[in-house]
């Protein structure tokens, strides 16, 4: 079936099967930042934006993106590097496998929440599992990023 969407700002049309997930579609189109950590919609590794909102690409059929915009970390390189630098300065990327989905959701949180508290940050990101860091360094990185971003405003 035909799928036309805007992927990282570029409009394109592809042939996909009815049961192709957005995840498989994106990986097959070279968006290799998008990872899969489970089969049960639990880990958050596959997070991408659909119309600017974070979704689990493993659960969304590719065809649901018909006519919509999809953003992966490949399309947010500059911002990923900006926030990522804070993670890196905490050593909180560790194995990095959950980083793309996590960074996608952080960047979404930054757009959606104004001045979030620690509790709000934790709740917003609760769907992003990480087994390496214990989450503390990620929180430190987010706080510093928000602080300096806020300062820049």
């Amino acid at each position: 079936m035909k799928l036309t969407l805007t992927l990282n700002g570029v409009r394109r049309t592809d042939e996909v099967a009815a049961d192709t997930t957005l995840f498989s579609y994106l990986r097959d189109r070279g968006c290799l930042s998008v990872k899969c950590g489970c089969e049960t919609s639990n880990c958050g590794l596959c997070t991408v934006w659909l119309e600017g909102k974070p979704v689990l690409s493993c659960s969304v059929p590719a065809l649901r993106a018909q006519g919509k915009s999809v953003t992966t970390l490949e399309g947010l390189q500059e911002e990923a590097a900006q926030f990522g630098a804070y993670l890196a300065d905490e050593g909180a990327e560790q194995c990095g496998y959950c980083s793309p989905g996590f960074v996608m959701n952080v960047l979404s949180m930054v757009r959606e929440l104004d001045n979030p508290t620690d509790e709000e940050i934790k709740e917003y990101l609760a769907g992003n599992l990480c087994r390496c860091t214990g989450y503390q360094g990620q929180l430190r990185a987010i706080r510093r990023y928000l602080q300096e971003k806020g300062g820049a405003k």
Partner: peptide, 17 residues
Amino acid sequence: GVRKKDAMSLVTGKPVY
């Protein structure tokens, strides 16, 4: 607390796995 040498590739989602 030196930054990891591979950190920036990991946080920007480079295909390294």
